[in-house]
């Protein structure tokens, strides 16, 4: 069973449907124990870094992520749900993240923002997440990103400058793009992840 962590606004039903295409049962929940014990946990996220982080803390999501990673249970952050896994975000002020990786989420230096639309990713060598979809495009919508390599396996994308599009770090995986909005390529990537559960 996969749990999608419900910790604020936004529609999670279409994400649920996208993950259901993998054949797994998918529940939307803010229940700590249910989320802790699920085979896979998805941490979505929309809006600003600080608001997202506040919502996460309210359901003890920060502790939940740390506890799952310590127990080697697969956990996937998406979009702002990826950004808050870093140590720091500087969108509308200076905010601490969950701190799984030491890097700052900062504004992309580009003439046109948000970075909105379909972009390719330079999949890291040996990436299991991108297996079979290395040359495909994924749907991004964001103005902020982490730019500094974090030691773990990072795949990059580019919008005027390079930024981290995905991280694969043991049990913890994250994508800056939205696999659940990335059509067949996104569903393939979701399946790659669910097969590790």
């Amino acid at each position: 069973m996969i749990a999608i962590l419900d910790y604020g606004s936004g529609n999670l039903r279409s994400a649920q449907r996208a993950f259901e295409t993998s054949g797994k049962e998918v529940v939307i929940t803010s229940d700590y124990d249910l989320a802790l014990n699920a085979e896979g946990l998805v941490v979505p996220g929309v809006g600003a870094f600080a608001a997202c982080m506040q919502g996460l803390i309210k359901v003890r999501g920060d502790q939940l992520v740390r506890e799952r990673v310590a127990a080697k249970r697969p956990t996937l952050g998406i979009c702002v749900g990826m950004q808050i896994l870093f140590s720091r975000g500087i969108e509308h002020g200076d905010h601490a993240g969950v701190g799984m990786w030491d890097a700052t989420v900062e504004k992309i230096d580009a003439p046109i923002l948000p970075h909105m639309g379909w972009n390719t990713v330079r999949a890291a060598a040996g990436s299991a997440l991108f297996a079979g979809v290395e040359d495909q495009s994924f749907y991004f919508v964001h103005s902020y990103a982490a730019k500094k390599a974090v030691g773990a396996m990072s795949s990059l994308s580019n919008h005027s400058e390079d930024f981290i599009a995905a991280v694969e770090d043991g049990a913890l995986t994250a994508t800056q793009f939205h696999p659940e909005k990335s059509s067949d390529a996104g569903l393939h990537l979701i399946k790659n992840w669910t097969q590790t559960l």
Binding site: S9, G10, N11, R13, S14, R17, A18, Y139, V141, E180, K181, S182, S183, G186, L187
Partner: peptide
Amino acid sequence: AEQVFIPLTVGGGIRTVEDVDRLLR
């Protein structure tokens, strides 16, 4: 949104923040 996994924009008749909330949900 449950069947087609690409971004969907909806316009027409949106007057309030609540209208937006309903559509996003």
